[in-house]
Design a protein around this nucleic acid. Structure first.
Lengths: 225, 225
DNA sequence: ACTCGTCTTGTTGTGCACAACATGGCATGG
DNA sequence: CCATGCCATGTTGTGCACAACAAGACGAGT
């Protein structure tokens, strides 16, 4: 028989997902700012593999628009011009609203617990502002929030669009030296508002609250440009 | 100096795009029905290359959800259960409506010409119904229609979603032995309605017309299941 | 007759060596 | 001094051989 063991060797798919997830996070949280060259050889060495599996990950990341490979030159983290960013933000607003309309699900107990834990962590962060930690919590909150919709394709698309805009948002925040503490406070209020709506089962309103915050964060971003 | 020549050798990117586009079309038009195994070796031989570049294409196709590779077994064209298909259709309806709202562009002269040519071809097809040609024209029309929105990310997403649903739609049409001629007539009317709206610059209405046709085609599909 | 283990076969995944390519430095001729 | 062509260097792209893996065939043992 086949017994499940704890020390199962990770399959090829597991290794792929792991590398993909790690690199995506690093790009979105500005560990690799836009324009950074990603060395295939160095990354392959870091993950203890050869270039071949790593290149597979890079192909996927290129498909998602996060990196771009140029023959003979290198693989670079992409940047975005303002027009493209604005269009993506507009789209994210509409799709976020759709999250509350297409197959809205009452938040799972586990989901709810995660959201409340996130709320606590963000409030704690208000005392010791840290841009990267801020980005991390924001990412987890957004991805968790997307799960209020039962529409899987919509969720996936919202995730992708978030990954595409997150780094630009964090970058311009850092470049314009926006007060991180202020953004943390705004973020904390956003979570609380959202949780209040979800607590009474008003998923539609929660989605609209999210939409307004996406809109306002974009306007704030535009003002400092 | 570097002169531009007509006999430029295709770059790696060109070769990639070519193979990707061809395979995508074959999958969407049922040349490779859902469940078909794609032989890396055979395809590499067909395109006159080795497995390595071809695998890159398959990785991209897997990212788009059109195929799925299993270690030691094969690479297969994906199928979809009804729930997933329904969700994708609902999403396509909403996004198609958005096409008329986010950055609507007055149709380009070239675009307009293409649309009218398509209309003529579809009307011509009514005499000699052919399922594959029908799928081909429908694909080109949908992709062309998506260009009425200036919102590039939205266009790309609509394209992707169409590629994901097209083969399932054609497949269930073929399986249920729906009258192709009837579908062609409906499609011809759809184009004409759409063109009438676009002719007077009412992009929003053109998008809504599209939405209603997506909705109705899904209902027709559901009825034969 | 049935079960289990083993072997064979065919597939995708990986590693490595080399080709194709772009870039910057450098020498050379004007 | 400058322009230009060449070359060295480092990068991604490709081809090929082999490893990892899954599924079915087959036969020995019960």
């Amino acid at each position: 028989m086949n017994f499940a063991t704890d020390d199962m060797l990770p399959s090829a798919r597991d290794r792929f997902e792991r590398m993909y997830s790690i690199l995506r996070t690093r790009i979105c949280l500005l560990d690799y700012p836009p324009g950074t060259r990603l060395s295939e050889e160095a990354l392959a060495a870091e993950f203890g593999t050869s270039r071949t599996p790593l290149r597979r990950v890079l192909v996927r990341l290129e498909g998602e628009g996060l990196v771009q490979s140029v023959h003979g030159v290198g693989t670079f983290v992409t940047d975005a011009d303002f027009t493209e960013l604005e269009q993506t933000y507009q789209l994210r607003m509409e799709l976020t609203e759709l999250l509350g309309i297409l197959g809205p699900k009452p938040p799972d107990p586990a989901l709810w617990e995660r959201l409340e834990a996130l709320s606590a962590e963000v409030h704690a962060l208000a005392d010791t502002p840290d841009a990267r930690r801020f980005g991390e919590l924001n990412m987890e909150f957004v991805l968790t929030f997307h799960r209020i919709s039962g529409n899987v394709p919509l969720r996936d698309i919202c995730d992708r669009l978030f990954f595409q805009t997150a780094r630009i948002w964090l970058k311009s925040m850092a470049a314009a030296r926006i007060d991180v503490a202020a953004e943390v406070r705004i973020f904390a209020d956003e979570i609380d508002e959202c949780l209040r709506a979800l607590a009474i089962g008003d998923v539609r309103s929660a989605a609209l609250i999210q939409r307004t915050h996406i809109s306002m964060s974009f306007v704030r971003m535009r003002q400092v440009w």
